[in-house]
Design a protein around this nucleic acid. Structure first.
Lengths: 252, 252
DNA sequence: GTTGACTCTTACGTAGCGGGAGGATGCAGC
DNA sequence: GCTGCATCCTCCCGCTACGTAAGAGTCAAC
């Protein structure tokens, strides 16, 4: 029931040196030592290590982590809730950074050099307040999802059928654009991407370009979406994805 | 036209010490000095500083930043791609942690106490190799997406229609379960969630419980999915989401 | 008994600054 | 010209969270 340091390191995906360090600073001292001085970690130690790694991933300092974990006030579920919230925020921030990078890549592909203003605009949104908002906008589980639910919960079956009809009409038109041989970067395709965004904003929730870009990524991982649209026309999923990206880059 | 260091620091939102540091390491040396040795930054210097801060925000190291900026467009995109990949991997890792936390919360709600081993298993360890895999499985943009594409690219229209038919049959059955008044945690609902997972594995890509849970979250944010299924039966989207979660918790 | 993998402690190196010390300027008001 | 205060200069040491040996003991297997 007691693991040597190497096993623990392997299990948790950290280096032995890291565990040595945590022992040095008293953050995680194994509860036992062998007669020859070898560290032996038991289950409780592992659990503590896991907590540490969670908070570390959230970029707390080790000192802060010690304070958080040793705080007797907070119980396990409080930690979990807190970690969940922080993780969501952090993901949103990283997602924004990914968008910024994609924007930069797109720009350099087209040979444009970003002006200072543009650069500022792209990253002019990493501050904490916006994070919270973005987190909630991007990650379903929270307010945006609930807002969407609240809004859509009042829709009648008639409404849904109208929404579906509207979607299908849009679907026919984007297929026509594809059939015409236009690229995903063509004005027609981008216009339909824009329409897609407005459709969402109208019926579900405020859909910014960032959010739409996120949706575009999801579509590629969403089998149902693929099944529906690939049946209509092979390549449609990717086409829409690219059109959304092109449109977002051009308009934002 | 030339600003003293204090003004520059204020403008850019960094400390004077930071500017000293950048001068020390040769990342940003002001183009002039006053007769008395004071640093004087001109417009070009400010522009360079802005670039530096932009890349710094994207978590490039100062060394990398120097390489990117001084090496006019030589391989900016390569750096960007690399950073994009790193960020995507981190996002995937965080997403995994979110899943693990939700799993733990779910478990503790039901009154189950996880052993340390179980926890480490759920979360699958943090070792780099697994990350890479998971990152690619979860975030479309990479190999898993391409794998799915590769697989599906060989499907004929016939295949797609069969997949769609199969989906619709499944759809009718889950509606029947709902109509019967069963809960999302009922064996029938969970069985259909399991079938959903196997359907994906069969036609698209290996779909683990974690991935399926991720998909379930997506469905709540995916307007198209909602439009399709809410039109069939209001509440179906949430029902499926809950069934998937229940099934994942029970089986994994 | 030997080999090879594992572990121990000690200790110096790293990035990106923070935060002084001790002294030289810049500028405003008298 | 003098005073006062802000700003600037150059060292230089400190910090975090480890990485990376170095040199030596230990464990398990053959």
């Amino acid at each position: 029931m007691a693991y040597p340091i190497g096993k623990v390191a392997e299990l948790a995906g950290v280096t032995v040196r890291t565990l040595h360090h945590y022992d040095e600073i008293g953050l995680l001292s194994p509860s036992q030592r062998s007669a020859t001085g070898y560290r032996r970690y038991d289950d409780a130690d592992l659990e503590r290590l896991q907590q540490i790694l969670y908070y570390r991933e959230l970029e707390f300092s080790l000192e802060e982590i010690a304070a958080i974990i040793d705080d007797p006030q907070a119980d396990a579920t409080a930690h979990l809730r807190r970690q969940h919230k922080l993780l969501s925020e952090r993901i949103a921030r990283l997602a924004k950074m990914v968008n910024a990078i994609e924007f930069a890549m797109e720009a350099s592909k087209v040979g444009i050099n970003l002006t200072p203003e543009e650069r500022f605009e792209v990253w002019g949104g990493f501050d904490p307040d916006e994070h919270a908002q973005e987190a909630e906008q991007r990650w379903g589980d929270t307010d945006a999802y609930r807002e969407s639910m609240r809004k859509t919960s009042r829709y009648t079956k008639q409404d849904w059928l109208r929404i579906k009809e509207q979607s299908e009409d849009w679907g026919r038109r984007i297929v026509a654009v594809m059939d015409a041989g236009a690229s995903a970067q063509s004005p027609e395709a981008m216009e339909l991407a824009e329409e897609h965004r407005q459709h969402i904003s109208q019926w579900y929730y405020e859909c910014s370009y960032e959010i739409q870009t996120g949706l575009a990524e999801m579509y590629l991982a969403d089998e149902r979406f693929m099944a529906t649209y690939e049946a209509i026309k092979p390549g449609l999923t990717v086409f829409l994805h690219d059109a959304i990206l092109a449109n977002a880059v051009a308009r934002s």
